[in-house]
Design a binder for these strands. Structure first.
Lengths: 109, 109
DNA sequence: CTGATGTGTAACAGGATCCTTACGTAAACG
DNA sequence: CGTTTACGTAAGGATCCTGTTACACATCAG
């Protein structure tokens, strides 16, 4: 679950969100944030070490792409807890919560 | 997504795991970790502020219980990415190389 | 070759985090 | 009451994070 630490930072979550729409170069990515490029380079390194992104050299550019596997692991980690809020939809047998979609509750704090 | 920062710590994740099996008192909880009780008290505070646990005073004891709502939020955050690995787990590289799929959620900063 | 472009790394500062020991406080006990 | 029990909080230190500026290096344009 090293991915959790990487995803704990808002900037890195945003990078992940951007890359979900398609790969991007490092500079192109950095241009969309209020921090300097080295800072983004640092974040990309953390994401890389967490396995969340992959880099591909394209000439002098570094193209980053999302690797969803750690997210899949996070999903698996979350799985055992799913029954805890699935039960809120009582009235039905919640033995197996599979196949149904958990509704998104309003954000708490 | 404040929960992500709280869950980034292994000790806190373990506390969450323990509480998923049922509520426990603070000291009882602390006894299962190799760190001192004040350290656990601190972790419980972070979890509390993230909304992941609730406290109930029972005499002089403080009974902690898991509140799954932030986990549900995390699940909802993860949802848009799910399609990235749900389709073809054995063709990730192709998937990544093509990019341009799934729309992404936003993130606070 | 020379210079511009695109990126990563180094060094450093400021703040956050995690742990420990010491102390404060409220409920239960005799 | 005075003590014990169960917690939380304060203070201090070591380490980690995140951001900035300065710099090292390839690669591309001429």
């Amino acid at each position: 679950m090293e991915a959790l630490a990487a995803l704990a930072d808002p900037t890195r979550r945003q990078i992940v969100a951007l890359l979900a729409d398609g790969e991007q170069g490092a500079g192109e990515l950095a241009g969309q944030f209020p921090v300097t490029r080295p800072a983004i380079s640092r974040h990309l390194r953390v994401l890389r070490e967490a396995g969340l992104v992959r880099v591909r050299a394209e000439g002098q550019r570094r193209v980053y792409a999302l690797d969803p596997r750690p997210l899949s692991e996070l999903d698996a980690w979350l799985a055992p807890y799913r029954r805890l809020w699935a039960q809120r939809l009582d009235a039905l047998d919640t033995e197996i919560a599979r196949g149904r979609r958990a509704r998104a509750p309003e954000n708490g704090r």
